[in-house]
Nucleic acid binder design. Structure first.
Lengths: 169, 169
DNA sequence: TTTTTTGCAAACAGTTTGCAGCACA
DNA sequence: TGTGCTGCAAACTGTTTGCAAAAAA
């Protein structure tokens, strides 16, 4: 769903397209990342220094309730906040590396099968499906293997890998 | 994984099996439902009135970190708390009715396919997969359809269905 | 008898609410 | 020009932390 249809969709519902909402909608749509309320607030402040954190929360709630954005947890890797993305793409799962925090998206048939089977076998009308997968990405596994190898050859025990990504928050 | 192996698994890690932890483990394992921290706390209090809410949180954190229980959100239908279940069954998705709040479990092939495809195509070592699906169960859809029908025949507009289940919390 | 674990109190993060004034349609 | 929206302050929910006392191994 392109940004324009989101805006139209709101208009049709009698929801006013205020400056603040425009800014937030643009940010969510254009970022390409998964931003949380605080990040959105800070980015929005650059465009409108007077904007309030509460407005961000209210707007996110509105967009979520009207089904225009999806709320993600991303395995609570960083903390307990939520992340947002516009509902523009095909259905996808989010895959989070539990070592470095990287988030990847997975598109594929099993997601559709899952949805259809739930509709068929449980008799549901599915509205939203959220799949989050935690694991270790190939990069982190390689690093880990190398560390273990080095430890085996020479030096004493290595420290555990850090649980949180250091670049965020 | 039966309850006994969970307890053994803890012992092996040098984790002490205190009275409080026994109680909580038994509750999570035997309830058959998905309980949140507050519900567990209240149930645990019946067996040990001196138990503290903090101990519940600490125990849940421990069990989660050792991979013995899984944490669920259940689409945040009720609120922002988390729910817990022991990791004893096969992989399954949770399907939540957005009208009545009922939670069902879905077992099936697509979940395994999904996991394997993520491992293969993204090169991940998958540790945990969580799928939550929100929709409307057949019962609620039937009720809704009947309401609409009745409204069409006789009376003026009907009120919206309630968003939250009234039996919980 | 040493090391964990607990209970208590207090702090904390993330989010929501009540209300008066502002601004969009 | 009225109703919806915003900003502000304050509250609230769910969860975590520091510390001394209690209880496992």
């Amino acid at each position: 769903m392109p940004l324009r249809s989101i805006k139209n969709s709101l208009k049709e519902k009698g929801v006013r397209l205020t400056r603040q909402r425009q800014i937030l909608l643009d940010l969510i749509d254009s970022s390409g990342q998964h931003l949380d309320a605080e990040q959105l607030y800070k980015l929005a402040r650059d465009k409108d220094p007077g904007i309030n954190r509460v407005t961000v929360y209210r707007t996110l709630k509105l967009l979520k309730e009207t089904g225009l954005v999806d709320e993600l947890d991303l395995m609570h890797f960083e903390g307990d906040q939520h992340y947002y993305e516009t509902r523009l793409k095909q259905e996808h799962a989010h895959v989070i590396c539990l070592s470095c925090g990287k988030v990847e998206e997975f598109f594929g048939e099993p997601l559709y099968r899952l949805r259809h089977q739930v509709e068929k076998s449980l008799g549901y009308q599915v509205v939203i499906a959220r799949t989050e997968i935690g694991g270790y990405c190939s990069h982190c596994r390689a690093v880990r293997a190398r560390e273990l190898e080095e430890a085996r050859i020479g030096s004493p025990a290595q420290p555990e890998p850090k649980r949180r990504a250091t670049t965020q928050r």
